[in-house]
């Protein structure tokens, strides 16, 4: 059963749009897949390599703005932003990496957090390039139907999933985990920690950047407050992986299911008003306390709790 799970899931997602679901559900699923992609990228850098980033909004935003600026300043198709953001995000993340990767633990986390904010305010102030806070709006999106967007983000998600699987099966994967478990020990074994941390950062950033470029194309409007948001992007990313399961292949997906689907359901319960956030926050606290490694990471615990397998 476990062996076939990826195929079953993929099959489900492939035929899902044919089940006659509404565009609303499609919208939620597109967001779900987008967040899964971002979550997987964060998981590589932070879950496997142990460098907890609080600044993935920086990469997401750079990707989105790559697309947006192509469209608004060069009158080209914003879809070109997807391949181009590989370069812009790659280069900028390399520069960020030079500055922040020498830091460890909470210091690294805070430095990435700050770099996300620096990019936001810079985008706000560089009006000649980014139109500042007025944001960039696509006159018309390429498709009205959700289907093309859905399959594009689905193929991105699948590609990223395979990429992560491949990367982690190579020597790189072992180096990453070695760095996470004990950086000094890894160093003394002759692992060039700076090099591998940089690789993890750039791969992670580029994937997030592509997701950002997709967001621009899909939503048709960005401004610095939206795509460089600390809480709505960076922290949501972390929560997705933490809730789903750090350093697990399925964690980001399960986390995105919880964070996107469940949050939407909780939000839609009529009559709750502003209360929905408190409920959701409470749920988060509960998950963190009782399932510290996330749902996938502590799946055994869940099974035990429901008496499925006596331990």
């Amino acid at each position: 059963m476990k062996k076939y799970m990826p195929f079953i899931t993929l099959g489900f997602f492939l035929i899902f749009p044919m089940l006659g679901v509404s565009t609303y559900v499609m919208h939620i699923f597109i967001l779900l897949l987008m967040w899964t992609t971002i979550g997987m990228s964060w998981n590589l850098l932070s879950g496997y390599c142990g460098q907890v980033s609080f600044g993935h909004a920086a990469f997401f935003g750079i990707g989105a703005y790559t697309s947006g600026i192509l469209y608004s300043k060069l009158s080209m198709s914003p879809w070109l932003g997807l391949p181009l953001s590989v370069f812009t995000v790659g280069i900028l993340s390399f520069i960020i990496g030079l500055a922040v990767l020498r830091l460890r633990g909470p210091f690294f986390a805070l430095a990435t957090l700050a770099s996300g904010e620096v990019f936001r305010v810079t985008a706000e102030n560089m009006e000649w390039l980014t139109s500042g806070t007025l944001g960039i709006m696509l006159q018309q999106r390429l498709w009205v139907s959700k289907l093309p967007y859905y399959y594009i983000i689905l193929s991105i998600t699948v590609a990223v999933f395979l990429l992560m699987k491949y990367l982690l099966s190579t020597k790189l994967g072992y180096y990453f985990v070695a760095i996470r478990e004990d950086q000094d020990a890894a160093e003394s074994l002759g692992i060039n920690t700076t090099l591998y941390k940089t690789i993890a950062l750039i791969v992670s950033a580029v994937v997030t950047g592509i997701a950002g470029a997709f967001y621009m194309n899909y939503m048709g409007y960005i401004d610095p407050h939206i795509v460089f948001a600390l809480h709505d992007i960076s922290i949501i990313t972390i929560m997705i992986v933490m809730v789903g399961g750090v350093a697990t292949q399925w964690g980001p997906f399960i986390g995105a299911v919880i964070m996107v689907l469940l949050q939407e359901v909780v939000r839609s319960i009529p009559g709750l008003g502003a209360m929905h956030q408190a409920i959701f926050g409470g749920l988060l606290i509960f998950i963190i306390i009782f399932l510290p490694n996330g749902i996938v990471g502590d799946f055994k615990k869940i099974k035990r709790f429901f008496g499925l397998r006596s331990a």
């Binding site: 509404s22 499609m26 939503m219 409007y221 939206i226 939000r267």
Partner: peptide, 11 residues
């Protein structure tokens, strides 16, 4: 949040 607003309206 625009993506949530969009989701609501799609619904």
């Amino acid at each position: 949040k625009p993506e949530i607003a969009r989701g609501i309206v799609e619904k």
